[in-house]
Amino acid sequence: MTRLITRQKLIQWAPFLVLVVLMLVFTAINPAFFSLRNFGRIAISSTPALMVAIGVTFIIIMGSIDLSMEGTISVCAVVFGYLFLQWGGTLFSSAWIAIPVTLLLGAFLGLLNGAVHVLLRIPSFMASLAMGFVGTGLAVMMTSGEKIFVKDDAFRSLVTLRYFGFPVMVYLALLALLIAWLIQSYTTLGRNFYAVGGGEELAHASGLNVKRVRITGFVLAGVFYALAALFAVGKIGIAESITGANFMFISITSVVVGGVALWGGTGGVLNSLVGVLIVNVIDNGMVVIGLPDYVQDGILGVLVVTAVVLSTDRRMISVVK
């Protein structure tokens, strides 16, 4: 006999159900929540966070973790700001080159991060935490705390130019999501991420170069962090050493709440999309129904623990550190 609702299925759909229930609750309390205007607001605040979440999703699928995003984003944002202004200050000059250069920089920082983790054989949470500190420190050093204003109208059209109520950057983010989904589902690299996460020793024994897969994962994550930096700068028009602040907690919460298991091997970027939306709907909804926003960190803390607990198959682990 097969049961219609298995534990597996429930866990798979739980994040989506949570999102729907949250939206219904907020709408019931204040109908203004359910409007195109408000959805536009949620979409804008979700965009940079989604890029970070996608990046770290690849890492978590491998069973590792990346805590370096705040540093990488800040460095990318600051370097982008300087180069963009240096090279003309508007998209219609050669300053557009700053965009691909920033993406390359993200890839390079990811490479460093992955190399420290894999080649020095340091657990990823600590290697990436330390690299994140270095990144933030580098951004502080480059700016001395100054802000860099990127006021170019063409670049800011990321957020000012709207189609069907949503700004351009939302569509670009969806495109990036599509690319990430294609990488995850239809490339060897994507399958290798799952192979490493599902069982590293098995993957190694079947001839996979696990080290190379891991490092490539961190490089890919770095590129998405750089995208997040571009969107974050586009959103407010300012690049500074704290552009990356708070992304660590928010993005990891999103990924885990979206249903990607910390142990690796399951979930994917679509889970992370749902997770990012849950986090941002809570954030937005609390303001709409008139609750103070500082409750958010606490609620996220409770959510993330709940999500990890629900997704953990207790028979499989013996030691938790």
Binding site: I65, F125, F249, I252, L300, G301, V304, V309, R314, K321
Partner: peptide, 14 residues
């Protein structure tokens, strides 16, 4: 609850 300490303490920090 078997949550790794770097996540559980991050959550408590929140």
């Amino acid at each position: 609850l078997m949550v790794p300490s770097f996540i559980s303490t991050l959550a408590t920090g929140g």
